[in-house]
Simulated assay, not measured.
Amino acid sequence: MENKKGWIGKLLTEFISVVFAVLLALGLNHWREANNDEKLAEKALVNIFLEIQANQKEVEAEIPSYDEQIAEVKVFKDAFDKGEGMPYSLGFNMPVLSRSAWNVANSTGAIKDFDLNMLMELSDIYTFQEMYHNNGVNYMLSMHSVDAKKDENAKAIVDSNYGQLKTFKHWSIQLSAIYQEFIKTYGSQYKELLPDSVLVE
């Protein structure tokens, strides 16, 4: 009887040891995964900050050119409004904005560890950026589909170009301000993660 009790005691001890080892292994594995997820989220966030800052510089660099183009197109617009035809060449350029860091953060699932409020703002930023980009691309495609050499199209093209440049300048200023506000609001929270090149006020 004593042998049986001793055998059961040993079996129970081994069972508890195995369960403890399994739980410890699962706990360590979970901790490792959580640690890896946190590092992935931090890396993704740094890349997004760098991307937003680069996009802001691209947008701001183009704003003065819109003023020049608006002034040039205004000359043509005024002439056409007076009924004076003028040789006209289409003028419009737009910044190339990146969304690679945002796409990678989404595809890797890194965004699940982002602060919810910040994630919502990032989503709004990249949605507006996409709208901004699509507007410019669609405008250029539509203008290249119109024969500018036909007199009946010339005034409409000039009016459209003038309106598009003014709209795009306004949107550029708005987008730049949104980028800047994001960096200012969240940059201080993650300052220890960000490189010195990200200027946080």
Rank of each mutant, 00 (worst) to 15 (best):
K4N: 05
G6H: 02
G6E: 04
W7F: 10
I8S: 05
L11W: 03
T13Y: 12
E14H: 09
V18F: 12
V19E: 08
L23P: 05
L24K: 01
A25E: 00
H30A: 12
W31K: 13
R32N: 14
R32P: 01
A34Y: 07
N35G: 08
N35A: 05
N36C: 05
N36A: 11
A41S: 15
A41W: 07
E42A: 13
E42W: 05
E42M: 09
I48H: 03
I52M: 02
A54Y: 01
N55P: 06
N55V: 00
Q56V: 00
Q56S: 04
K57T: 06
E58P: 00
E58S: 03
V59Y: 03
E62D: 09
Y66R: 07
E68C: 03
Q69S: 08
Q69N: 09
A71F: 01
A71K: 15
A71M: 09
V73M: 12
K74I: 06
D78A: 14
A79Q: 15
K82D: 13
K82G: 10
E84I: 13
P95K: 02
S98P: 00
S98Q: 00
S100G: 03
N103L: 13
V104I: 13
S107F: 02
S107N: 10
G109Y: 01
A110T: 04
I111S: 12
K112L: 15
M120N: 15
M120A: 14
D124W: 02
D124A: 09
Y126A: 01
Y132L: 08
N135R: 13
V137C: 07
N138W: 07
Y139I: 12
S142I: 08
A148D: 11
E152I: 09
I157V: 02
S160A: 15
N161P: 09
N161A: 11
Y162T: 06
G163D: 13
G163V: 07
L165H: 08
K166I: 11
T167Y: 11
F168K: 14
H170E: 13
A177P: 02
I178S: 12
Q180S: 15
F182S: 01
F182P: 00
G187I: 00
Q189Y: 12
Y190N: 04
E192R: 11
E192G: 06
P195R: 03
S197W: 11
V198L: 06
E201H: 04
